[in-house]
Design a protein around this nucleic acid. Structure first.
Lengths: 216, 216
DNA sequence: GGATTGCCGTAACGAACGTTACGGTTCGGC
DNA sequence: GCCGAACCGTAACGTTCGTTACGGCAATCC
């Protein structure tokens, strides 16, 4: 289930992108009741066009998820040599970005739709995972391994280290937001959360002072 | 939104409990398409009875969520004096229990329903949170504070410490499961995960060797 | 200039489903 | 035995919504 995405990009036109933006707005405002009529009304297009372009309702949802996922890509690897400060900055930047994404109404709406369908049809969930959690992992693991190579981190398995980093950053925020709870997440608290989580990550996986593996 | 639950228990009869079990089975097998007809068929009862007992579809869902939540209660506080081994055992027991719950099909189905409705109607989400995440926190915080009083843990805010513990235990497991991914979670790996997370928690908040706060 | 294409707005069809109503059956009380 | 209450199985009603079809309008091509 560690599937990749985007074997064949379907060539979204500008007008089609407008329609998908309308779908996102509709998801954010009206939640789950995403009807084709509401989308057509909000996008000022005809339902016939929706079906011609996207096939059916599932096709529209899939296109929307892929469309949104294609816009999240951020922060390429960067080949600069790593010192402790640069690694910290990169990890904190990752944490800030991730917290910002998972607390955005767009991401919440899409995750809610994908989770709501995961009982029967898990294709949306696979897309969301591939472009969220797994894309993040494959982008962060080289950073972690570069930190290890530079003698700043110590771990046996980069995947395991990333999963712990993931837990330290997200904690209970994502599940609470998904369930409708609203923890305060203004940019300042996001920065504070990122700083705390990266500090804790270094306490667990840092190699400098006494560092080493964590679990006894 | 840290609401309590159960001000007035609605007195579930045995037959009604059978019906709610049928709802849970229906949710687990057929996912989101939970129709009143399917519930009535599976529970061998009439739709008229469903409406007489639970009002409407939302009432049935609410009753089901509360019914399931009322069965999860585990592991009372226990007034035994804490040493390091007892605290570790209690924390690992918590972690095992929590991982087992969030990876059960029942919990997944209920969380999916509550999340799917959280866009428009977040009453289900509030119930799930109150009986899941928040019940856990209020049950664990005394343990953490007892550990601090015994000189085994060091933290400023028990809520913050618990949230970090939560993140260390759950990591990416819950969101992956909710989205339909299937990480291996047999009882042995759950035990291993629990042991690892509690070890990391002690590395961050343990007070014995050099311990103290984690973040710089 | 006329034909073709693409798209908008709206109406219409059909299936799924929540909700209600009704006849038949069982069971406890008198 | 008889009555009423509770409940089962099923039919029926009304709404919502996905999907399709149709008429009109603007732009493009010949």
């Amino acid at each position: 289930m560690t599937a990749l995405a985007a074997p064949a990009e379907p060539e979204i036109s500008a007008r089609q992108a407008e329609v998908l933006d309308a779908v996102l707005r509709q998801l954010m405002t009206d939640g789950n009741s995403l009807t084709m009529s509401a989308v057509a009304r909000r996008a000022s297009c005809s339902k016939e066009t929706l079906y011609k372009w996207f096939g059916d309702r599932d096709g529209l949802l899939n296109a929307t998820v892929k469309y949104q996922a294609a816009r999240v890509h951020v922060a390429a690897v960067g080949p600069d040599p790593l010192d402790r400060a640069a690694l910290t900055a990169r990890l904190e930047s990752f944490a800030i970005n991730w917290l910002t994404v998972i607390s955005s109404e767009t991401s919440l709406a899409l995750n809610r739709v994908a989770i709501g369908q995961a009982g029967s049809d898990r294709s949306l969930g696979a897309i969301v995972l591939a472009n969220g959690r797994f894309a993040l992992g494959s982008r962060m693991k080289p950073v972690l391994e570069a930190g290890r190579k530079a003698g700043l981190l110590a771990f046996a398995d980069a995947e395991e280290a990333f999963r712990t980093l993931f837990g330290l950053v997200a904690r209970d925020v994502q599940i609470r937001l998904l369930l409708g709870d609203a923890p305060a997440l203004d940019p300042e608290s996001i920065r504070a959360e990122a700083s705390r989580s990266i500090g804790q990550f270094f306490a667990l996986y840092g190699a400098q002072p006494g560092g080493g593996q964590a679990a006894p």
